[in-house]
Structures are given as structure tokens and as C-alpha cells.
Amino acid sequence: MIGVAYEGPTNDWAASLMNHLKYSFDIKYADQVKEVYYESADGDATKQLGQVENLLTKGIDALMLQPLSETAMVPLVERAYDMGIPVIIFGSSIQTDKYVTYVDRDNYKVGNLYATWVCEQLGGEGKVVTIMGEPGSGYSEDVLRGVNDALAKFPNIKNLGTEYGEYSGAVTKQKMETFLSANPDIKGVIVDGALMAMGVLEAYDDAGLEYPYMTVDDLNLFQKKAREVGYTDYISVPGGSEAAAVAADLLFKYLAGEEIPQKYLMDVRIMSGEEVQAMIPEGMPDSYWGMCLIPEEHIELYYPKE
């Protein structure tokens, strides 16, 4: 019996994470699973506390947790550890090491790859802007550290500012329009999210400027837009929701007695737009992600074709 506590389908990324979990337990490892208790917190850390507490009373053999708070979940994770329940952390970190393994994307490396690529495309000089997700989020700060470290290696690149687009196209478009009003010569935009990247393209469109070199994740929404307008000067990295499937693999390896690392950061590589678009089967909805670990024969269960 396995307990799974996760964010819930509050956005495309979280929905993909959930789909990977369901595929792993309902299909891939169905023969090894007696029962799975899913607890969806709808993005609410307080709600998740109660859910995990509840799971620990059900006699589960393992707990898979996507912590919605780095600190609030610590006592419960440590309690599970003390009860002898193996805990797998995935998708976001937690401030304790009393778990079997922690699986996530290497977010620092993502930021580093993003900024390095943009600076290289500009030949090491010019103006750029950085657009991150949420201010104060540990995830965004990890990516930003990678961005800033890379930018430091290009002294002739001027980062006009780091703004937070709050994963909103409208917010990002407004901020980008402001940057462009004073600096129409911005040639590179480091963006950490597809919805925000849509806002950047819109701002350039409205200003009548050529699209900049840009970075983005592998969400189909953006890839479709890029294909539609013939935009190719961007790179993508996997969004990281596939960490849920990797975490499930590691759980079953652990339960089978194999050794697994305590921290597993999925390696990332940059992909061209064409490369990502080729990974996306025909007719997939906007919410589909290029780096999907659900095999093609099962995809329609989770992503019905449009």
C-alpha cells in the first residue's frame, strides 16, 4: 500500500506531475501495487499536512510526497521515517534528510543553461531581461542563481532587470512592454515558463520588433504558438514534471532491495524548438509537455487528443 501526497491539478505542470504518478501506479507498476491512496492538496500546504497525517494512520508501506512547504512538512516526514515508512520526496525539496530519496530537476543547471545559451547567441554582448516565476519561491531562486552565475561570465551582457511574471502571460506582457518602451534593442530574454514566454512574444509583436533569443520550457502551448508564427530562435528544457515517474521507478527499486541515491537530480539538456516539437505527438492538447515519460500507447488516457 502506497500513500501519495501531491499538489493536485492546479496548473499544467502539476497536472502533468499527477498524470505521471497515475501512469506509474495504475499501469506501469499495477501488478506490484495493492492499493494507492492519492491525496491531492489543491496547492494548499495546510491541507497537505492533514492529508499526510491521515496517510500515516493507514498502514502504508511507502509515502511519496511532493512537499508544498519546505519546512511545514518536516515533522511529518521525520515521523514517517521513525515509523520505518520509506519516504520519497519529489518535485520540490524539504529541509530534512530523513527520507529515502529526493528526486527533482537540476534547477540551478537549468538557469545556467538558459543564460549561457542566450548570451552565446548574442555573441557575448547586448541587452537581456530575465523573467522568473514567483518571487520568494525556492524553485525560482534556484533557477535564478544559475542564471546569475552564467551572466557573470559575460561582462558585456547587460541584464536590464530580473522580473517575476507570476506564470501569467498578461503580467509578463505588461512588464516586457515597459522594458521595450525604454530599450527596444533588447535581443535576449531569459524566461522560465511557457505562459510567460507567450507574454514576451506578444510584447514584441505589439511593438513591431523582431522576436528575441529566448528560453522556455517544453509546454505544448508555447511550442504550438512558435510553430504557428515560424519562431525558431529559442531553446527549451524539460519542465521537470516527469520527476514523478522517475521517483516512482526509484521507489520500486528501493522496495526490491536495490540501492538508490539519496538525492537524484535529473540531468537537463537544452533542446531546439524543432527537437521539442518533434517529441510531441500530433493532436496533443496545449497542456502536454514534450518530455513526457508516459508511453505513446497510454498517452490518450491522460491527454485526450484535440
Binding site: 496548473n11 501569467s168 502571460g169 498578461a170 505562459l195 507567450m198 506578444e202 502551448l221
Partner: peptide
Amino acid sequence: IISGYIGYADRWIGA
């Protein structure tokens, strides 16, 4: 106005 401004219908526009 807001969906026409951004150009696509994200479910959380206007949050």
C-alpha cells in the same frame, strides 16, 4: 479585453 490583450485563454487569467 484581457484575453484579447494576451491572445490566449489561460484558465487563470485575471487572478
